[in-house]
Design a protein around this nucleic acid. Sequence first.
RNA 1: AGCGGGGUGGGGUAGCCAGGUUUAACCCGUUGGGCUCAUAACCCAGAGAUCAGUAGUUCAAAUCUACUCCCCGCUACCA
Length: 547
Amino acid sequence: MLNVRKIIVTSALIYANGEVHLGHVTSTYLPADIFVRFCRLNGDQVIHVSATDDFGTPISIEANKKGVKPEDFVAFWNKKDREDFADLGISFDIFDRTSSEENRKLTQHFFKKLDENGYIYEQDVLQPFCENCDRFLPDRYIKGTCPFDDCGATEQYSDSCEVCGRPIEPGAIKAPHCAICGSKPITRSSKHYFFKLSEFSNPLKNWLKQNQNLQLDVKNYVLNWIDEGLRDWDITRDLSWGIPVPSIDDKAKVLYVWFNNHLGYISTAQKLFAEKGDEDGRKTWNASAIFHFIGKDIVYHHYLYLPAMRMGVDEYKLPDYIPTRGYFTLQGRKFSKSREWYISVRDFLTKFPADYLRFYLAIITPYSQADVNFDWQDFENRINNELIANVGNFVHRVLTFTWSQYKGQVPESASLCDVDKELKEELVNVVKEAATEINQIELSKGLRRILAFSAFCNKYFQTKAPWKNRETRNTTLYLCVNAVRSLAILLEPYIPFSAQKIWQQLNLKDNVSEQTWDSAQELKVPEGHKIVKPETLFERVQDAEKQ
RNA sequence: AGCGGGGUGGGGUAGCCAGGUUUAACCCGUUGGGCUCAUAACCCAGAGAUCAGUAGUUCAAAUCUACUCCCCGCUACCA
């Protein structure tokens, strides 16, 4: 292990105004976590970074409505999100917030640098203004009637209609009124800062073309976007909840959330490095492979704004990978909180173990922008047939056999027959092949490969029939117990809680997460080792379809 | 509308980017058999698909190209 890989993995920041739901988990947090856990087993120097995205109009409005300070509002969600992630086994090395001191500083630093380098300019824009509230009304501070004749829904935000789902052009909304007090806004001029995104068209194009790690479909999508012509980007808002624009004295003007939130990846990683005594976080950042896991709803921000800003400042390297996954649907219908068609992590965990969710989502989520459908019947089938009947069954039959026939002591191995040797070869193959898939972020394929190994083990056990072949059963069980240990390691990235349970039933030292991936191809459980009394690993799922 | 993704045995999917190594794979369901260590779990054998349609490229296409039909998603000043 001379060349230890240095890896920084970030999960897209969750907006601090609501609970973690299955959509977030599917596209971002679970894939990132599986990958990170694998890297840890693999001996890489890896950190998993995320944070809550604390600023912006919606938070400002909601805090206002509830009569609490935005600071307290986001602190509440930060705590709640942490708990949800922890219970799901999402293992962050640091989970911070974009409103941290570190991120404020870095954001202002970026603004100043971009300004110095000539990428920022001022321009007056006409903004809706509420005279009653004495404030400008950005984004979602305006509500009105959907302008499409066939819809006409009332009380819609001015940017898009929740009822018909169509985006609304600025200024097109009918009967506009202030979302706070309801009065009719007037138009007033306001000075805004713009980032010259348009100047980065060519550098962005070159970077996209030259980076071989980006998904082809996403890359083409973004390249098309660039060809249509990039517009400069308004990076300020007339709002008090945010990071102030440095060097101006207007407290009611802050930097746009999308200007600062992705800088949270860097500031948070640096904070962690500093805590570990590494004061030159920039150097470490630039020496690492950078992975930003995201959902396809934020492709623009991560493939255009983020790299352009880093290019403009030229201090922090660009991402190497931006694993992007698709939209989440529930029973074939679009996931939507406002239409009450969604499942939160918290709700799910009151009904089923975290590993069931991890397993199911991991196996149905491809490495592409294709949408992922959560179906309760399918969930039940896969858990019962692919997790329990395959993995659970193999582990359980081996351990209970060892317990009842050998009083829990792993028997001694004799010479290996061809079938035994085949099992040993399969062990080496699965360790290598699953690692290849996971390294390519093909997490679903990696899991399928491991399941194929488990199925192979069941077949092996059946073929060897240790319950009647007394002369070979010692060797059979010796190999099978070792295969169980290997499965625990291989499955740890996917189902860490269950993997640890298997580890404990095997009565092995330390935690399964502290093992090395490659050790899974070895037969490390010694002859004569004593296991503990096995217990059922998984409960079958019955009638998953409710809610 | 533009762009992107998809249409594979009864259901759900993989394979397609790097065409032949596939007699098209996997899970469910289904037919018959076996086993009884194991959570009605496990194993074996079988039935069932001209890979949406049409036309091409090629010695060879589910895989590449063009067009057509259907489904879904995205569209920057919305996190």
